[in-house]
């Protein structure tokens, strides 16, 4: 806790704003039931009501309260984002470090897999996988993780490759340091900031990707995530010529952008925070 407040000191104003927004979304997700008066999955008013006292953000085409949907949607977005980031970040970091450090055929093996994964056009494969697994939140997270870990792995591996050539690592190895020691003492600390940053980025990407999959109609149709609200809104015939989009499309769009931007700002500060040497040099140097 103490460390957290100390670190908070390093956050820039935008980073702090990002943190505040993120925590607001977290609160929204945790206290969904208290924050809403209408159900989020069944209609509670007339269809396409503009924002009014009873329905703060209006209703959608089948009369479901939009504020409730947004509040419950925060849960899904956060869940998808952080679960995907967690799974793929951890896995990717492990694979990347392992492959980069051991080298040889293991490295080549993993690189072939990573290459293969990267080369496959992800969207069509996701479409096929989503069709194969069937829709559902767990499936969406699975599909997203399946495609996300390679990025962390690749970044980590290339960093490890460079570190391995550094003099102090070579000296350490010559002096008889074992691989576990090397990884723990030299590689891991060097790589960790990268992993953190890439994980936060992955969370943002996963939230966007979930929205993209939902936009294509491949999300969980019963989940009512923000992406799904946008999907239904954009598919509504004539959405751009009527006034409906001013509440139906705009608010989930804003929520989605807000969440993603908040993540990006936090990520930015973490990036400098994670590499204090770089930070000090810069503040002292230029």
């Amino acid at each position: 806790m103490n460390r957290f407040t100390k670190n908070l000191h390093y956050f820039s104003p935008t980073g702090k704003a990002g943190l505040i927004i993120l925590s607001l979304f977290f609160l929204m997700a945790v206290f969904s039931a208290r924050l809403t008066t209408h159900p989020h999955d069944v209609s509670s008013g007339k269809a396409l009501m503009p924002p009014c006292f009873d329905h703060v953000l209006g209703t959608d085409d089948i009369g479901v309260d939009l504020w409730s949907q947004l509040v419950y949607g925060a849960r899904i977005s956060l869940l998808v984002g952080f679960l995907t980031a967690g799974i793929s970040g951890c896995f990717g970091a492990l694979v990347g470090m392992f492959a980069g450090y051991t080298g040889g055929w293991m490295d080549r093996f993993f690189m072939r897999i990573i290459d293969g994964m990267m080369v496959l056009p992800d969207l069509p494969v996701m479409i096929v996988l989503a069709a194969f697994f069937g829709p559902g939140l767990a499936q969406v997270i699975l599909v997203l993780s399946l495609f996300s870990w390679v990025f962390t792995a690749r970044i980590v591996r290339s960093r490890v490759l460079v570190i391995k050539q550094k003099e102090y690592v070579i000296y350490a190895r010559i002096s008889g340091a074992g691989p576990v020691y090397l990884m723990r003492k030299h590689l891991f600390p060097e790589v960790l900031p990268l992993v953190w940053v890439s994980m936060i980025r992955l969370a943002g990407k996963a939230i966007v990707a979930e929205a993209g999959l939902s936009f294509l109609g491949l999300g969980d149709p019963t989940s009512r995530s923000w992406g799904l609200i946008i999907y239904h809104a954009t598919r509504f015939p004539g959405i751009y010529y009527t006034r409906f989009w001013t509440w139906w499309l705009l608010y989930p769009f804003l929520a989605l952008s807000g969440m993603v931007l908040a993540l990006a700002f936090v990520c930015r500060d973490l990036e400098t925070l994670a590499d204090p040497r770089m930070n000090q040099k810069i503040s002292g140097g230029v």
């Binding site: 999955d41 069944v42 209609s43 085409d61 089948i62 829709p135 109609g217 491949l218 149709p221 019963t222 239904h232």
Partner: peptide, 13 residues
């Protein structure tokens, strides 16, 4: 199919 989600939601309700 994904085209009929809205309709199905109303029917479900």
């Amino acid at each position: 199919s994904t085209q009929e989600v809205r309709m199905a939601e109303l029917i479900k309700e």
